[in-house]
């Protein structure tokens, strides 16, 4: 564990709490992409299957269970409790392509051609693009509630910090995780426009609006 990874994990955790806070406080999931949330639930379930096979640490186990449980709870909130506030007209990104592309990549790039490893690769590739429906929704509405932008920032920041963590681990442990590296760079790059607007507008007290 190094400082980058710890802060990254805490940001990831914070992003989920911010999202839950936004939904509960505003009693609405307006501005949140159900499709992105669905993709994250798929990411967590397919990646953390090793909960049943490998013990790493209490920290690791608790975080994994939390990520799976919270992602499914958010789907429940959006699909049932606050269904009336969700606008599917704005959430029209075709996730079939993201899912299909991730399956193909996972079948080609994996550490072993067994279900567990293929699903792990699939989750890594899918996570890198899972934010696209959310960013697409943002571009359609052209603006967002401030709390929603904090959520997206924390979620994007987490993987950017993982890049620092991987660099650290490469330098000090010789640890290399090539697929996660590539996916992490893509994932962070997808956020770059968002980060720029977040920095120039939201952090200066202005509303998030696309130029």
């Amino acid at each position: 564990m190094n400082i980058f990874r710890l802060v990254a994990d805490l940001m990831h955790l914070a992003s989920i709490f911010i999202l839950l806070l936004k939904i509960q406080k505003t009693r609405s999931c307006a501005g949140i992409s159900f499709k992105t949330q669905l993709l994250y639930a798929i990411v967590f379930v397919t990646r953390y299957l090793d909960l049943f096979t490998t013990w790493i640490s209490l920290y690791n186990t608790i975080m994994k269970i939390f990520f799976i449980a919270s992602s499914i709870y958010i789907l429940y909130l959006m699909k049932y409790k606050f269904r009336a506030t969700y606008d599917p007209i704005l959430d029209t990104f075709r996730i079939e392509f993201l899912l299909g592309g991730s399956v193909i990549l996972a079948l080609i790039f994996n550490y072993d051609f067994i279900p567990m490893e293929i699903l792990w690769s699939f989750s890594i590739f899918l996570e890198s693009v899972a934010i696209l429906p959310q960013l697409f929704m943002l571009s359609r509405t052209g603006e967002a509630e401030t709390i929603t932008t904090h959520y997206i920032f924390a979620l994007g920041g987490y993987r950017a910090l993982y890049l620092c963590n991987w660099l650290w681990r490469y330098i000090f442990d010789g640890h290399v995780e090539v697929y996660a590296w590539i996916a992490g760079v893509i994932q962070t790059a997808l956020y770059s426009d968002f980060f720029y607007i977040y920095y120039t507008k939201v952090l200066h007290g202005k509303k998030f609006e696309l130029p």
Partner: peptide, 10 residues
């Protein structure tokens, strides 16, 4: 190489 691959991250 394959077997040494350890997934200890989230």
């Amino acid at each position: 190489e394959k077997k040494e691959h350890k997934k200890d991250e989230l």
